[in-house]
Design a protein around this nucleic acid. Structure first.
Length: 707
DNA sequence: GAGCACTGC
C-alpha cells in the first residue's frame, strides 16, 4: 500500500512506526513577552461587556446599555462632526470598537444621509446578514430586518422601499454599480474591512471615488465615502482619496501575550503538536487552543497525532477534544467546532486560515501559529495558477494572535523566531495583484473605461491586465484589446455573475441546443466542488462514484451526478449524498446558482431552455466556445502540452480521464502543485477547434492534425 | 497515480 506523505494510513505498521516518532521534541519559547501587539490593547473594565456579548455569564445588560458601553460611543459627536465636514473620511478602527454596528446608526440618527441610503459593504455574506440583524434589533421599535435596516446578498435581498441602512457584500455593491455607475441610490457609502483588500473592495475604491466626482461635476446629490479599516497604513488610503482626513478609534480586546521560538523550526507541524502538549500540561482544562495550519491533509494528520498522543498514559492533562476546521469539510463536521467541550476536557481546533476572519470560535485562550498559509497565486505570463504554502504576513500574524483575546486575556505561541517574524512581509499582497482579472476587466469595461487606465489603489501588473483584455477579445466581448466599448455579446456577458469564459458558454449554448446542460455544468464549475475525497476512504469514494463517470470526461460526469441527484426524493437526499461522497451543501448551492443563472438567461432573451438529451457532442462543442484557449494535446505517454502557452502538463489524478490519454482535451483550470496538473477535463476533436475558434487557431497550431 | 487556502456575484 502506498504511504501518504503525512502518515495517515491506518495500517498497523503505519501507526506503530508513526508512534515511534510521535513524541515530539519540546519547542522552547522565549518567555520575555515583548510587545504583545503593535496596536494599543486595552484591558476591559470588569463591568464592561464585550461588544459581541457571546460569552457572558453576568446578568443581561439592556441592548441600549451595551451600545453605550462600546468604545465608539464616546466619540459619537466627534465622529459625526467629522463625517459632516468631510466628503471622504477614513476611520481606522480596532476590533471591538463597535464601528460596524454603531456608525451607520449614528449617521442615520443625525439624518446625514438626507434622502438617500447608507450602504455598508462587508467582504462576507454572513457578516452582512448578522450585522444587519443586530442593528435592526438595536434600532428597536419592533422593527425587523428588511424595514429601516436591511441587507442584500446573493440569493437574498432583504430590503424594502423603507430601507435606509443597507448592509451588503462588496460583490453585491459592485454588481449594483454596473447598473448605476454613480450609485444614486446612496448618499453615504461605507466600505468596511477595507484592510482585507478583497478584489471587490479594491474595484469599489475606484468606483466610489469616480462616482463622487461625477456627482459633484453634475451637481447631483453628493456622495459621502467612509473607509473603515484596521490597517496601520492610513497614508496609503489617504493619498489615494486626495489626502482625506483619517480618524483613529480604539478597540476593545484583551491583551495577548506573544511567544516566539528561540530557534527556527523547519518541521512546523511537529512543533505545533509539541507546543499543544506543552500548553495542555500547564493550562486549566477549559482553556481552549486554536492551531493554524495550511490545508486539509496536514490538518487531519496533525489531528491524528494529537488524538493518538492524548491517549498515551504518559501524557498529563485533562482529556482532549480535537476538532478540525477547513472549508471543504461537510457542514456537520464544521459545526462540532462550536460546541463547548464537556467538563474537564480541553478543546483543540486545528484550522486553516478560515478561522482567521471568516469563523470566530468562542472560548479560545491559546493560539498556536505555524506562520504558514496555503495561498493561490496567478502568473500572468503563463496564465498559470499556483497553489503554494508560504509564510504569512505581519497582518495575518496579528490577526491570528487576536483570536486568543476575544473573550479574555490570551496567549499566542508563534512557531518562528522573532527575527524570522521581522523578515516576513508587512502586508498581504492584495488579491487584485494575484488573481485572474478577466471578470474585473469586463466590469471596468461596463463603465466605459479601459482597464489600463482604471484608477486602482494598487495597480495590478500590466501583464495581468493585458492577458485579461486579450481573453475578452478572444471571447468576442470587445473588438480589440484597446477598445473601451463592449460588443453586444460583451454586454450580455457582463450580466452574468461568472468568469467571462463561462458566460460565453451559456450565451452560445442555445445555438447548440444544450442550454439546460450548459447551465448545470457551469453552475457546478462555478461553485465549490461537490465531490468529497476523505483521505482515508479515497478508493471507496471513487468506486461508488464510478457509475457516473463518462468517457467524455469530468464535465459530463458532473452532469450525470447532478441529473441523478435531481431524481432522488427530498427525504433520501442526505443518505444518497453520504453514500456517494457528495457534499450536499455544495450541490444544493450549485442548484441555487443554476436557478439564478437561468433567470439571467431569460433576461438576456436567450430563448427557450433547450436540452440536448443524450447528444453530448453538442454540449462538448458548446464548452469549446468558452474554453478553446484551455486546450491541451498529447505529446507522449500521459504527457500533454497546452496549446496556448506550450506548457507541459499532466492530467490531475482526481480526473476520471487520468488513466486514459485522448489526443485532445479542454480543461477548466491548470494548477501547479508538485507538477502542473489539468483539472476538469473534456475530450474534444481537432475539427471542432477549427470550426469554433478559427481566429485563435490561426495563431495556435496543433502538433498533429489527425484527430 | 496525487492532493484543491479562502471569499464573492
Amino acid at each position: 500500500m502506498m504511504e501518504s506523505k503525512y502518515n495517515i494510513g491506518n495500517t498497523k505498521n503505519g501507526v506503530q512506526k508513526f508512534q515511534m516518532k510521535m513524541k515530539p521534541i519540546p519547542v522552547i519559547f522565549n518567555n520575555s513577552n515583548g510587545p504583545s501587539s503593535p496596536k494599543k490593547i486595552k484591558l476591559n473594565d470588569e463591568n464592561r461587556n464585550p461588544s459581541n456579548g457571546q460569552i457572558n455569564n453576568k446578568p443581561k445588560i439592556s441592548i441600549q446599555d451595551q451600545r453605550r458601553n462600546l468604545p465608539v460611543f464616546d466619540k459619537r459627536n466627534k465622529l459625526l462632526d467629522l463625517i459632516k465636514r468631510h466628503k471622504t473620511l477614513i476611520i481606522l478602527a480596532e476590533t471591538g470598537s463597535g464601528k460596524t454596528t454603531q456608525i451607520p446608526q449614528y449617521i442615520f440618527s443625525a439624518r446625514l444621509q438626507e434622502n438617500g441610503k447608507i450602504g455598508i459593504t462587508q467582504p462576507r455574506r454572513v457578516a452582512a446578514v448578522s450585522v444587519a440583524t443586530r442593528v435592526a434589533q438595536e434600532y428597536g421599535h419592533g422593527m425587523s430586518v428588511g424595514d429601516t435596516v436591511g441587507y442584500s446578498v446573493r440569493f437574498e435581498d432583504c430590503t424594502s422601499n423603507k430601507t435606509k441602512i443597507k448592509f451588503l457584500t462588496d460583490g453585491m455593491l459592485l454588481r449594483e454599480s454596473m447598473f448605476d455607475r454613480i450609485l444614486m441610490e446612496y448618499t453615504v457609502v461605507i466600505l468596511d474591512e477595507a484592510h482585507e483588500r478583497t478584489i471587490h473592495t479594491d474595484v469599489l475604491f475606484g468606483i466610489v471615488k469616480r462616482a463622487q466626482k461625477t456627482r459633484e461635476d453634475r451637481n447631483l446629490a453628493p456622495l459621502k465615502i467612509i473607509i473603515m479599516s484596521a490597517t496601520m497604513d492610513v497614508d496609503h488610503f489617504s493619498r489615494y482619496f486626495n489626502n482625506c482626513q483619517a480618524v483613529y478609534l480604539e478597540g476593545r480586546t484583551f491583551p495577548v501575550n506573544i511567544y516566539y521560538t528561540i530557534k527556527p523550526h523547519d518541521d512546523y507541524q511537529t512543533s505545533c503538536v509539541a507546543t499543544f502538549f506543552k500548553i495542555h500540561r500547564e493550562a486549566p482544562p477549559n482553556h481552549d487552543v486554536l492551531i493554524f495550519l495550511t490545508g486539509q491533509e496536514e490538518i487531519e494528520a496533525c489531528a491524528h497525532r494529537i488524538r493518538m498522543l492524548a491517549k498515551d498514559p504518559d501524557v498529563k492533562g485533562p482529556s482532549v477534544k480535537c476538532c478540525t476546521l477547513y472549508a471543504a469539510q461537510p457542514g456537520a463536521q464544521q459545526m462540532s467546532v462550536f460546541q463547548p467541550a464537556p467538563p474537564n476536557t480541553r478543546k483543540v481546533v486545528i484550522s486553516t486560515n478560515i478561522a482567521e476572519t471568516s469563523v470566530t470560535i468562542p472560548g479560545i485562550r491559546y493560539v498556536i501559529d505555524s506562520g504558514m498559509v496555503k495561498a493561490r497565486t496567478f502568473h500572468p505570463s503563463t496564465g498559470l495558477e499556483l497553489l503554494k504554502v508560504q509564510k504569512i504576513s505581519h497582518e495575518q500574524a496579528w490577526q491570528r494572535a487576536g483570536r486568543a483575546g476575544r473573550d479574555s486575556e490570551g496567549h499566542c505561541y508563534r512557531i518562528y523566531t522573532r527575527s524570522q517574524f521581522e523578515l516576513m512581509e508587512k502586508t498581504t499582497t492584495p488579491e487584485i495583484q494575484r488573481a485572474n482579472l478577466a471578470t474585473v476587466a469586463l466590469q471596468i469595461l461596463t463603465l466605459e473605461l479601459h482597464p489600463n487606465y482604471f484608477d486602482f489603489l494598487d495597480k495590478p501588473s500590466k501583464d495581468a491586465v493585458g492577458l485579461a483584455c486579450e481573453q475578452l477579445k478572444l471571447l468576442g466581448a470587445v473588438n480589440s484589446v484597446d477598445s473601451i466599448i463592449l460588443t453586444p455579446l460583451g454586454r450580455k456577458m457582463s450580466k452574468f455573475p461568472l468568469d467571462p469564459r463561462f458566460s460565453k458558454i451559456l450565451i452560445t449554448a442555445q445555438q447548440y441546443g444544450c442550454l439546460q446542460e450548459a447551465l448545470t455544468v457551469v453552475s457546478l464549475l462555478s461553485g465549490e466542488s461537490i465531490l468529497i475525497n476523505p483521505v482515508t476512504k479515497q478508493a471507496e469514494a471513487q468506486n461508488v462514484r464510478q457509475k457516473f463517470c463518462s468517457a467524455y470526461g469530468d464535465h459530463v460526469t458532473l452532469l450525470n451526478i447532478f441529473r441523478e441527484f435531481d431524481t432522488v426524493g427530498q427525504n433520501n437526499r442526505r443518505t444518497w449524498c453520504h453514500e456517494h461522497f457528495i457534499n450536499m451543501r455544495n450541490i444544493l448551492h450549485a442548484r441555487e446558482i443554476r436557478a439564478q443563472l437561468e433567470q439571467v438567461c431569460k433576461k438576456c432573451d436567450l430563448g427557450v431552455m433547450s436540452s440536448c438529451g443524450g447528444d453530448l457532442d453538442r454540449l462538448r462543442k458548446c464548452l469549446v466556445m468558452g474554453l478553446f484557449m484551455n486546450v491541451a494535446e498529447l505529446v507522449r505517454d500521459h504527457h500533454y502540452i497546452t496549446l496556448d502557452k506550450k506548457q507541459s502538463v499532466q492530467f490531475h489524478p482526481s480526473s476520471c480521464l487520468h488513466r486514459q490519454q485522448p489526443h485532445l482535451v479542454l480543461f477548466t483550470e491548470v494548477v501547479q502543485t508538485n507538477k502542473c496538473y489539468l483539472r476538469g477535463l473534456t475530450t474534444v476533436e481537432a475539427a471542432w477547434l477549427q470550426e469554433i475558434a478559427p481566429e485563435y487557431m490561426k495563431t495556435h497550431t496543433l502538433r498533429s492534425n489527425s484527430s
